[in-house]
């Protein structure tokens, strides 16, 4: 059974069957990644463009590895080497790229909605690798995969997304994906990092991290942006670390070992203490491994759909 859409723009409205199909397919690919020869010919002859208007080494490497494991031809385009700086419009850039007969485009962009706009400009399959503070569906899929791998099922578990939800692209995708799969979802952050009316998405809001830890099975801890602009939303790194940082002492005090995810890169000593980041209940590096398998699954399912 194929996926219901030929693009992956986000996890909003992606049916449960599609998510299950991606996760099941990823499991197969993960097994392949354990073999001595990790390459399969599945996407041989397909040309995939990684269109990165925003710097994201990890996501790009993960996608590129997934593409090469599937034997696709890979082209990388990043904004610093493009003609955007020469004044070319996004539309013209895309039309030029399309004229070169690209089958799939993986796009990362600082402006929300750009992957959707891309679907109107060209015929290729579009995969959103993060758009502004909107969605980052493959990150949420790899989070789902990692939770499922660790706990066995997503149905009925309680997951809290901790941190700057308002300026995160991971949060919305996680909320949509987790809810579709039957999890209970909450968010926890200082009130300035909770976007307007997020309760309307059916998520509970915590302002107290201890309460969030007590009530949930999984914490998905987001990276805190340390740049000056993001810093307008909280008084200081010190205050954030003290009241929202996940530390061994905090977990011990509550007396609960909770599964911890983090999309990386971690600010050690800020949202996660060293001990927790390297501790027994985190699956941060398995998330990275699973990311390649999940992206292989998405690329394979979309690339062979047409």
């Amino acid at each position: 059974m194929p996926l219901s859409s030929r693009h992956l723009l986000g996890l909003h409205n992606v049916p449960k069957e599609d998510i299950n199909l991606i996760l099941d397919t990823a499991k197969t690919f993960k097994e392949i990644l354990e073999r001595p020869i990790k390459k399969v010919p599945t996407l041989q002859g397909k040309t995939i463009l990684n269109l990165f208007y925003e710097n994201s080494t990890r996501t790009r490497i993960s996608f590129e590895l997934a593409q090469r494991r599937l034997s696709a031809d890979v082209i990388n385009f990043s904004v610093s080497t493009s003609s955007v700086s020469k004044g070319e419009t996004f539309k013209d850039t895309i039309k030029n790229i399309e004229a070169m007969k690209i089958d799939m485009v993986v796009v990362r962009h600082a402006a929300a909605g750009t992957p959707y706009y891309l679907t109107q400009l060209c015929d290729a399959n579009i995969i959103n690798a993060g758009d502004g503070t909107h969605e980052h569906p493959t990150q949420a899929l790899l989070d789902l995969y990692s939770i499922k791998e660790k706990i066995g099922s997503i149905e009925g578990i309680k997951v809290c997304i901790v941190g700057d939800v308002a300026h995160s692209r991971v949060a919305l995708s996680n909320i949509f994906g987790l809810k579709t799969m039957g999890a209970e979802v909450s968010v926890c952050a200082p009130s300035t990092m909770i976007p307007k009316e997020i309760e309307n998405l059916g998520v509970k809001v915590y302002y107290n991290i201890d309460d969030a830890i007590r009530d949930n099975d999984v914490l998905n801890v987001l990276r805190i942006q340390l740049e000056r602009k993001a810093r307008e939303y909280f008084p200081s790194i010190r205050e954030y670390q003290q009241y929202y940082g996940i530390t061994r002492q905090r977990l011990d005090r509550i007396g609960k070992d909770i599964l911890i995810l983090h999309p990386g890169p971690i600010n050690r000593g800020v949202e996660l203490s060293n001990e927790v980041a390297d501790g027994p209940n985190q699956i941060i590096l398995p998330q990275v491994t699973n990311g390649v398998a999940v992206r292989m699954a998405v690329l394979y399912l979309l690339g062979t759909k047409n």
């Binding site: 929300a112 909605g113 692209r169 307007k196 009316e197 309307n200």
Partner: peptide, 15 residues
């Protein structure tokens, strides 16, 4: 880029 509302949260656009 748009009105700050549930829709800006949903669309990921600055309000």
């Amino acid at each position: 880029a748009m009105n700050e509302s549930f829709n800006s949260t949903f669309l990921g656009l600055p309000g």
